[in-house]
Design a protein around this nucleic acid. Structure first.
Lengths: 132, 132
DNA sequence: ATACATGCAAACACTTTGCAGCACA
DNA sequence: TGTGCTGCAAAGTGTTTGCATGTAT
């Protein structure tokens, strides 16, 4: 199980550099497929997972939405509009101390956490007000 | 759009009382279908969504896992084992202050947040050690 | 009476997988 | 050379939806 560096994996990494807005797997695929129409979605998914396992990129999981990926070290949180489903960046320090605060773990080894703030974005909020 | 109280909605609420361990939609369905074999999964999903909208129950969304539901007021966080996918309860106070700490929202109205702690449960950790 | 809810099956979005052939080390 | 990777299509999971019918108010 020694990971290899393939053309496709390189393309995935490059795509993540180009698209620096924590893209979804689909967005990564769509970016690559423009130039290299033969790459498949499955390969993009497999390489993203692989790069996460190699600890080279970061996966940000969001309930009820596609996961987002980022070149390692830009660990941040997201706002999610529960009306339109859009994801927004949240300028807030990553809460590392949180993981140390947790006790009573009974042998559970913490590797990270996922935090998403839910709400209603200003656009959807405006629409709602106009309709009432 | 006035919600009605139907037999099925009552059954969903009762199921949530019986299964007090924040069940998934599937677990709610399986509990009800034992006694009432004609209820459909779609109805369970619709009623759960409906009850959430009526603010009568709580939905806990977990990335890459089924959402969990609970009779309102037991708001708590979860540990998720990234190896076996199991969900464990986390004895930690709900972090209400978190939502007030966030600034720079540009009109985004916060309604809640979802936090899941990821890691490896003791069972999976043991297995891994045995294999090495 | 008339919205709203139901059951069913099909569709949905996101992701993983089985397989036969290909290519990196 | 051999194992790991690819493309493709199909399957998988969790959830929603279209439709004809049923039912609470």
């Amino acid at each position: 199980m020694k990971p290899r560096m393939t053309i496709q994996k390189t393309l995935v990494l490059e795509a993540l550099n180009d698209l620096d807005n924590h893209p979804t797997a689909l967005e990564v695929y769509q970016h690559i497929v423009k130039k290299y129409p033969t790459i498949s979605q499955a390969t993009v998914y497999r390489n993203l997972n692989c790069l996460v396992a190699e600890n080279k990129i970061l996966k940000i999981e969001i309930p009820n939405s596609a996961a987002r990926y980022d070149i390692k070290n830009v660990n941040h949180y997201h706002l999610k509009c529960d009306v339109c489903g859009k994801i927004f960046d949240l300028e807030m320090d990553y809460f590392t101390e949180l993981e140390t605060k947790i006790t009573n773990l009974k042998g559970f080894k913490i590797t990270g956490h996922s935090l998403v703030i839910n709400g209603i974005c200003s656009t959807c909020d405006k629409k709602y007000k106009e309709e009432n």
